[in-house]
Amino acid sequence: MTFSLVARCAETGMFGIAITSSSPAVAARCSFARAGVGAVASQNVTDPSLGPLALDLMQSGQSAAEALNGVIARGKFTEYRQVLMVDALGNTAIHSGPNSLGIWTQAQGLDVASGGNLLANEGIPQAIVDGFTESTGHLGDRLIAAMQAGLAAGGEAGPIHSAGMKIVDGVSWPVADLRCDWTNECPIENIATAWDIYKPQLDAYVQRALDPREAPSYGVPGDQ
């Protein structure tokens, strides 16, 4: 009931994750990223504790593959879990337990990994990886393009209702964390619309946090 990707921008070092599901609020449970460290998706009968564990292991110096081994060794019921991760060098690793739901597959390359379950067909993760690698521009643009490619290839077997996109870069908090927790329309397109609005303001929000004296005006009624 989920498909996702984790990715690294080789030019900027940003990390991001985008995810969608038929379940509500999927990004709240399944998406994890840490600036300078990596990004992780923990999905399919979700155990949210696996995301921070994977990031901690990668922050300690382990590669994505080594961290994945640690997650499998320490996690519970990993035969039910899907875990995707990308590390600071762009290495990727994926675990899909044999009890993953429905049609489940995965695909990966340098800087990007994708996986899903209860899919419409087995080609969805590869379509997502291809959508990311063939796109250009800001990492957020490429995450959206990849998810749209997965949806165009068939997406989930049933309707999707929630989605999210998270990006980290240089500070301890996500520089973008956009979510659609439930809709009967297309949550991926809702996130794409939110990104179009948020993207031009991203740097200003970071600057306001770091030093509001140097920040641009707020651009709202009453702001002088």
Rank of each mutant, 00 (worst) to 15 (best):
P125I: 00
I124H: 00
A127I: 01
L101S: 10
A88Y: 12
A107W: 00
L139T: 07
L178T: 01
L143M: 04
T133C: 12
D130C: 03
L118V: 15
N121L: 01
E122V: 12
A145L: 06
W104P: 10
P159G: 04
P159Y: 07
D130P: 08
L178Y: 03
E185G: 14
T193G: 11
D141F: 05
N190M: 14
E122A: 13
I94A: 03
L118G: 03
I94F: 06
A145P: 07
A204R: 09
C186Q: 11
G140H: 01
G137V: 05
D177F: 05
N91P: 06
N91D: 15
T105E: 14
V129Q: 07
V171H: 03
L101G: 08
G155P: 06
D130K: 11
A145F: 08
S100Y: 09
A152F: 01
F132T: 05
W195L: 04
T183S: 12
A107S: 14
L202A: 11
A194D: 12
A204E: 11
L151Q: 15
I128S: 07
G116V: 02
D181M: 01
H138V: 05
D87I: 09
L110M: 14
A204C: 10
D203F: 11
L139H: 08
G115K: 01
Y198F: 14
K166F: 08
M165L: 10
L89A: 14
L202W: 08
V175G: 02
Q126E: 07
L89Y: 13
A152G: 05
L101C: 10
G123T: 07
S100W: 08
D141S: 03
Q106K: 14
D87M: 05
P125G: 01
D141K: 02
A107H: 03
T183D: 03
R142C: 06
R142N: 00
G123F: 10
G123V: 06
D196Y: 11
I167V: 09
G158L: 15
Y205R: 09
N184D: 14
W182R: 09
V86E: 04
L143I: 07
T193F: 12
H161G: 11
Q108C: 09
Y198D: 00
G116W: 04
R179C: 04
D87R: 04
A192Q: 09
A157S: 13
A120T: 09
H138F: 11
L119F: 02
G150V: 05
G90W: 07
G155C: 01
T193N: 13
S114Q: 03
V129A: 06
A176H: 06
L101P: 07
G170V: 01
T136M: 13
M165R: 08
E156F: 07
L101W: 11
G150W: 09
V168Y: 02
S100G: 13
L101A: 09
E185R: 15
D87N: 08
F132A: 04
T136F: 12
K166G: 06
L151V: 12
P200A: 00
H161S: 10
D130H: 06
V168Q: 08
W104G: 12
G115Y: 04
W104A: 15
D169Y: 14
I167S: 11
G116L: 02
Q201Y: 12
V175F: 00
L202Y: 06
